[in-house]
Every structure is written in C-alpha cells, then in structure tokens.
Design a protein around this nucleic acid. Structure first.
Length: 605
DNA sequence: CAGATTATGATTGAAGAT
DNA sequence: ATCTTCAATCATAATCTG
C-alpha cells in the first residue's frame, strides 16, 4: 500500500484544527471536589427497593444508576461492591493533575484504580442528569478511563459535542496531541476521512476557528514529554484531504469517502492465485517484531475500519472471505504487520462446498436449492419450530413447490444456514459440524451446552483462514513463539498456530468467558503443549505490570493476536449496533493499548 | 416444595453491500 | 430491488437452593 508523508501538501491541507489549544479552563462544575461522605456499611440488606436504599446510604443517584445498570438490579452484593469501589476512588486524591500520564511503573494505567476515577463530581452528575446531559459525564468518564486527563476530555467534548462517539472524541484528543510534536500527517490512500461526509454530526474540520494555535513549534509543548504522549503520537494518523487534489474543492468527497470492500474478498491473494501480492509497505514504527494480528467483522457501520486502521498504525485491513478456505462464508477484516510472501495453507485442505463437506445431505437436497456454500456461521441457530413450518409447507405443496414457497424456504435456509437432513426436512448445523467448518478439532467444544457451543463457535476465527495469514511465522520462529492472545475465545489463534506446526513456548491468553477459558485450557492440556499457558480473565486487568512481568519472565512477545468484540459492529445486532463506541466493541481500545505497551516494553530489549 | 436462579428457544429489523 | 449479517431480548422451561 502506498504511504505518503504529507509534507508537500501543507498549503493544501488545513492542519490548524490539529493544533493543541491552551488547555481551556474547565467548567466550574468539573473542578468541584467530591462532597459526599463515605458510606461503608450496608451488608446484608434486602434486595427490594434498592435504589432508595442506596440513595439513603449516601451514594449519588448517578452512581447508583450506573452500578445497577452494570450489575442488573437484582444483584445487591455486586451493586454494593461497585458503589463502594466508586466511593473509594472518589476519595483518592488526584495524583497527577495536569499530567494525564501514569508512570510506567503504575500498577494499572487503565483499570479501576486510576485516580481520575469514576464519580468525583456528584453535584455535577446530578446537575447534568437533571438537565439531560448525562451523556456528557458518561463520555467524560470513558475518556478518563482511556487515560486522558479530565481537561483534555472535557474540552474535547465541548469541542465536538456530546453526541459524538467516544472514539471520535479520542481521535480529536489524539489529533491535538499529535500536532504538538508533528507538523505532518500521514496520508493513506486506501481510506479517506470518514468524518467528512455531509450530514455527519461530527466534523473535525469545522473546529478550525476554535483551535487556531498555529504559532509554530513553541506552542504548548509543556505536556509533551510523557510516555503516553509518545504512544498517542504514534497511534494517530489523520487521513489527509485527498479529495482536494481531485480538482475543485471537495467535489469528489462522496466516492472517496466510503471504504470499498474488495470483490472478490481475497485479501492479498489466495494461495492458488499466481498474481497475488507478495510485498507491501508497513510504516516503520509498526514493523515487527513483535508481530501483531487483529481481526473483526468486515461489514461494520461506516467509518469503523478506517478508525481501527488509524489506531493500528494506519495499516490497511486485509479483507478475506473464508468461503475460499471453507464451505461457509465469513467476511472478516484483518490488520497485521506480518510478511505476506510464502504463505501456505493448512493440511488437509477443507472441502469447500456443502455437499463435499456433508455428502449425506445429497440424498435429500432439492434441485431447487442452489446453495453451494453456507452463509456466515453465527451464534444463534434456527428454531425447531421453523424447520417444522418448512416441512409442513413443503408437504402441502407439489413436488416442485410453487415459486413463492421456494422463495420463502430458501430465504429461511439461507438466513439460518439450514441443511437438508430428510425428505422435506431441514435442520440447523450441529455444533460438531460448525467445528469442522471453522477448522477446529472435532469435539473441541464438546461437553458444554448446545447454546454455549454455538455462541463460542460463532464468535471464533475460521482457523484455516487465519492460519494462512499466520503461516509465515513458522519459518521466522523455528524454535517457537511467545504469544499474547487477546479475546482468545475458544483459542482459534492457538489452534491455528498449533496446526501450522508452530510451537508456542509461552502464551498469555485473555478471555472473559470462563467456559471459553476452560475449553482452551482443556485443548492445551490434551494436545500436549509444552509451553506455559497463563490465562487472564479481563483485558482491563492486563496492566503494564502484568505485561512487564511476563516479558521479564519469558523475554518478550513475538505475536500479539486477537479479535475484539464485534457485538456493536455486527449487522445481526438489532439493538445496539453502536459502532466502536459500543459497550463491547469499545474494548478494541484495549487491544490498541496493550499492543502499544508491549511494543514499548519490547523496544527496550 | 416454593422461590430463586439459570438455561434454552423463539422472536425481534436495519445498515450496508451488490 | 435483493441479499447478508462473529446478536440482544424476553418468555418459558429447567435446574438449583434452603
């Protein structure tokens, strides 16, 4: 891919909005000290009417609402625990006002003990809530959790508005911070600014007038020398306004604005493709080792992949549909810094059509079902009631059913990935069939409930697809690799590496689901892995200290791999397809954060 | 065994690509 | 227009608890 530093283009690209301002004064409400008195007692209280009880205990309304929202309103103990935690945080004095960096030795840069904590300003909370501005505070808190100073966060929110997604607020702060040191910006011609579309609520270029501080290098340097600044500087690449070059002024924004998925979706090329791409340019600062590999769904809301790319050193995603590696489609984007020459496939090569993979279905397959491959394997399956409705309808129809019946049956079959299992009978794929299609060993998830297996499998990698991209590691690390596996799930990355014949000398695996951790641990033990598998339950617990300890023990990481939650990105989500700022998908930020810490620590070695 | 908790199955559109 | 999509929610069944 083409990378161009934006130097000759300064006159054409307005960078003024990138400049940092002079730490605008905080709104008075933000500077108030906490006024609540602590509340320590309360164990053993009943579970009914929780809200007034907690209010009586002295917790702020917002605090209580947050805790109940987080824990569900029946879980008294958890709510109380959170409330006490909030309260404790509230009483911790701010350690580094005016300097949002935590020291490298800080036990937890990002976790709950960050002193810029949760509810330092109850009065403001209440006031904002009453005035319908609770979102301001929520965003402020999130940004603080991401490590920004309160004033940087609040000024960003003021700048961009409260309705702006959290990642764009973060972008805005990054931009300001980046501009303090860097005059130029990266230009990446695969994406163009996803923020410029007319009608977007957020337009960073509209803030020029508020952010004019273009007095050269001497402005606002006093907060540059922190480690966090260094990270942020490298993390952020603002796409340039390439449209300006296309004649006129912005007339070409429309088509340049959207990200076009490759068709066919073959990434840098399939193993059988003689014309596949063998080399690409990786920004120097992103080159491995350590190598990294990030995965998520390809079909996200607009702007998500450009944002992910910006955070991951501006590397463009490799979009691959697993239908070229399996009998089921799976459109995914991968951002990695791996070499792409001399890739190879796992053996045996999976069967790529439904009937090749499941020959027994042929006897019952109607001629009018023209499917050759399954659609994306998801976390839920079709209901038995549906299959019965289909059967009843077909029984009541002629042999070649009328077109409208065919149309309906095919719609449901495609939607739920149904397979023919008898005369007029369809059924969802069995869990072990899903295991096969995804490249996992048979019975990999066996022993757990059907629902859990579908869920875990549906959230997983397609092993052959990922293995193809990881295969270059085999020759790079003949003696084995040390892996940081984030959002491990049931261990798709580990299975892929194992099947590639790459020895894992040490793995630090982060996975929130205890079932998935058990599945991975079980596989690890049963496949006779010689390396050490260390499991952590929450990415938020992966602190600098945890990473330093692992690196000191094992010498470092060779690969950081993971796919962050897609819940808020996936098209199937009816309720909360909120993009990267969503509750789960925002954990992507931890991938970026952890990767960056690892790269910094490794650079010292 | 009653109440509480957990597990399972059925139902619920829209965004974005083609 | 037509098609696809690593899902969340709720009611109910199943299981647990004391």
């Amino acid at each position: 891919m083409n990378w161009v530093t934006d130097e000759s283009d300064d006159s054409d690209v307005d960078l003024s909005w990138l400049q940092n301002d002079d730490n605008p004064p905080l709104p008075p409400s933000l500077t108030q000290a906490p006024s609540n008195q602590a509340l320590q007692d309360g164990a053993g209280a009943p579970t009914s009417s929780l809200v007034p009880k907690f209010l009586d205990m002295g917790f702020s309304p917002k605090m209580v609402a947050d805790a109940i929202k987080k824990n569900g309103d029946g879980n008294y103990e958890s709510i109380l625990e959170d409330l006490l935690t909030y309260k404790m945080l509230e009483e911790t004095p701010l350690a580094n006002e005016g300097n949002e960096e935590n020291t490298p030795s800080d036990e937890n840069d990002w976790g709950d003990d960050d002193s810029s904590g949760i509810d330092d300003f109850d009065d403001m909370d209440f006031e904002l809530e009453m005035s319908g501005q609770a979102s301001f505070r929520k965003k402020l808190r999130t940004l603080e959790e991401m490590g920004f100073s309160r004033d940087a966060a609040s000024s960003a929110i003021e700048r961009c508005g409260e309705d702006v997604p959290i990642f764009e607020l973060a972008d805005s702060i990054y931009a300001a911070q980046t501009a303090e040191k860097e005059g130029g910006v990266w230009e990446y011609d695969g994406f163009n600014s996803d923020k410029k579309k007319e009608g977007d609520k957020y337009d960073p270029f509209s803030h020029n007038n508020k952010r004019q501080r273009c007095d050269g290098a001497s402005s606002s340097r006093h907060r540059n020398s922190t480690q966090m600044r260094e990270r942020l500087k490298r993390a952020y690449h603002q796409p340039a306004k390439t449209s300006r070059r296309c004649g006129g002024d912005g007339d070409a924004v429309g088509e340049l604005d959207s990200l076009n998925l490759p068709n066919p979706m073959v990434g840098f090329g399939l193993p059988t493709d003689p014309g596949r791409q063998l080399y690409r340019d990786i920004p120097k600062e992103a080159q491995g080792p350590p190598y990294f590999f990030y995965e998520n769904v390809a079909l996200t809301p607009k702007g998500v992949w450009p944002t992910i790319s910006r955070f991951l050193y501006g590397i463009s995603p490799e979009f691959v549909d697993s239908k070229f590696f399996s009998a089921a489609c799976r459109k995914r984007g991968y951002i990695h810094n791996l070499p792409i020459a001399n890739r190879f496939c796992l053996e045996p090569i999976p069967r790529k059509t439904i009937l090749d993979a499941f020959p027994s279905a042929r006897a019952h397959w109607p001629t009018w079902d023209t499917r050759t491959q399954f659609n994306c394997l998801q976390t839920c399956i079709g209901s038995a009631q549906l299959t019965e409705r289909i059967r009843a309808k077909l029984v009541a129809s002629d042999d070649p059913p009328p077109p409208d019946v065919i149309r309906w049956v095919m719609y449901e079959c495609r939607k739920w990935n149904l397979i023919w299992v008898g005369q007029n009978r369809v059924a969802p794929l069995e869990p072990d069939e899903v295991e096969y299609l995804l490249g996992f060993p048979r019975d990999h998830t066996r022993g757990w409930s059907r629902t859990e297996r579908y869920k875990s499998l549906g959230n997983s990698f397609q092993v052959d697809t990922v293995a193809y991209q990881l295969s270059v590691l085999r020759d790079l690390y003949p003696n084995g690799i040390r892996v940081l596996s984030l959002f491990s799930g049931i261990g798709g990355a580990e299975v892929a590496l194992h099947r590639l014949g790459i020895k894992m000398t040490a793995v630090l695996s982060v996975e929130i689901s205890p079932i998935n951790r058990t599945i991975l641990r079980s596989w690890w033990d049963q496949t006779g892995q010689v390396g050490e598998l260390e499991e952590v339950d929450d990415v938020q617990c992966v602190t600098d200290a945890v990473l330093e300890r692992f690196i000191a023990r094992h010498g470092g990481f060779d690969l950081v791999i993971g796919g962050s939650p897609c819940n808020n990105l996936a098209g199937s989500n009816r309720h909360h397809r909120d993009g990267l700022s969503g509750e789960h998908s925002s954990l992507f930020y931890h991938y970026f954060r952890i990767l960056d810490v690892v790269r910094n620590l490794m650079a010292r070695y």
